[in-house]
Design a protein around this nucleic acid. Structure first.
Lengths: 248, 248
DNA sequence: CGGGCTTTTGATATCCTTCAACTGTTGTGG
DNA sequence: CCACAACAGTTGAAGGATATCAAAAGCCCG
């Protein structure tokens, strides 16, 4: 039932101090700075669950009463436009945290792309936790600042670069995301459809498909299995992403 | 020497408890939750200065040793691309804070658009302050989350909307920014050039110019003075921004 | 085997960019 | 005081990158 590569959709074993006992997640890097007493705190308040592909975790406008962590799986974050089209603001991977919003309600929809395991904690519990462990609040701020920077990067890509450069950048980003999580470089899980990628990059699915076709023809990538890519020439992709014309 | 509308580029008098003594700024809303002892802390560590238009506050890659607050003036935040083009990630207005970066260095360039007054504080002083007043760290997080949400909005605009919709959205955003600061709706300061706006919206300056021309012809806006706009039909602009065709 | 979904590929359309010329304004130095 | 350079803005014409429309092929699953 699961795609063949589910194993890589799972977060690797925590490397630093210990895991969230309830869900086994590194909790978006948050846990790395925590001692076991804090982890007990988290574990006590959190609960694990499973979800199929293409299920909603939460919707834009929903009261942001819960925070989610990805144990295994990939999630698409997107905003719906009036005409039904969508803009994907980001993809999230194992270990990532979702749904911590400033106002009382979520600013975007979150939907699973691959079946996976998730961990849920009440917002009020997390907030209480943050009050009890001030250095965690610091970590949250750092996390948010990094996310802001990533979104700005994305904005540059969408705003100023030609189609192939955007697709190349997406592939390099996917690679980086999986490398950080210890997935094998020769088969990166890519559970998103061409339409998802197009909605992420501000392109149509046809343009994305043509870019992939071009990359495959030029031996920059292959798709060894469904929902799987391998980057054959990262240097060339990087040059493309920067907007340079190709040498060869 | 200053443009005629400098007064509106200044932050209104603080409404809540008191101002940063050194710079008179509300410090991006941060001060609103602070008692006077904290304000003294801020004031002691900060210093004020003046800058002409088109001067750099800091550059991408610079060590982020200082945080800035805008007392009066408008600032453009942008990333430079390899080919010299730029993507503006945002504009900042009186009362806003700039330059609080996650990593050690700034992620973008900051440049004044209008001459103005600014306030500078050492990063280490602000961090010390945050440690001493934990509820301020909370405020910083909220600020960052809001900025993230705004950047995602912007991404939707740049990624999925036609040119006129983006320009309309920019104008409405400008209006909202100034309303929050008590500027007169009949003459919104707009110190950015068509090129700046284009770099913000992912358009060329010509396309921006044509959109403005179209809006003026249709009596949606006027430019009563240089670097000044007035929105005549916000409802129509809002409809345009949403991507609907016009009724009339 | 058939239905639905994703992907691919082709032909055409269109929005926006690019290139170019011209205007208006501002500041400056003769 | 005016000529002139520099810059912001406007407008037009042409071309191109990407969207749109369309059809067919591949794939999964019932």
């Amino acid at each position: 039932m699961d795609p063949p590569n589910t194993a890589h959709l799972r977060v690797p074993a925590p490397r630093v101090l210990g895991a969230c006992l309830a869900c086994g997640s590194r909790v978006g890097g948050l846990c790395q700075a925590l001692d076991t007493s804090v982890l007990d705190d988290v574990s006590a308040a959190s609960q694990r669950f499973h979800l199929e592909a293409r299920r909603s975790l939460f919707r834009a406008g929903d009261p942001a009463g819960q925070i989610f962590f990805i144990v295994a799986g990939v999630v698409k974050l997107y905003r719906l436009l009036a005409d039904g089209r969508q803009q994907v603001v980001g993809f999230r991977f194992p270990g990532d945290m979702l749904g911590y919003a400033a106002a009382g309600s979520h600013g975007f929809d979150a939907e699973t792309l691959a079946p996976g395991h998730f961990c849920r904690i009440e917002r009020r519990h997390l907030d209480a936790l943050l009050r009890r462990h001030p250095h965690m609040e610091r970590r949250m701020l750092d996390l948010c600042l990094r996310e802001l920077s990533a979104t700005q990067d994305h904005l540059v890509s969408v705003g100023r670069r030609p189609a192939e450069a955007r697709v190349a950048e997406f592939l390099l980003g996917l690679h980086a995301a999986w490398m950080k999580r210890g997935a094998p470089p020769e088969a990166l899980p890519m559970p998103m459809t061409r339409a998802d990628i197009g909605d992420f990059l501000g392109l149509t699915l046809e343009t994305v498909s043509r870019s992939f076709a071009g990359f495959k023809r030029r031996r920059l990538i292959t798709e060894p299995a469904p929902q799987t890519v391998r980057l054959l020439d990262m240097a060339a992709l990087a040059r493309l992403a920067e907007g340079e014309a190709e040498a060869a």
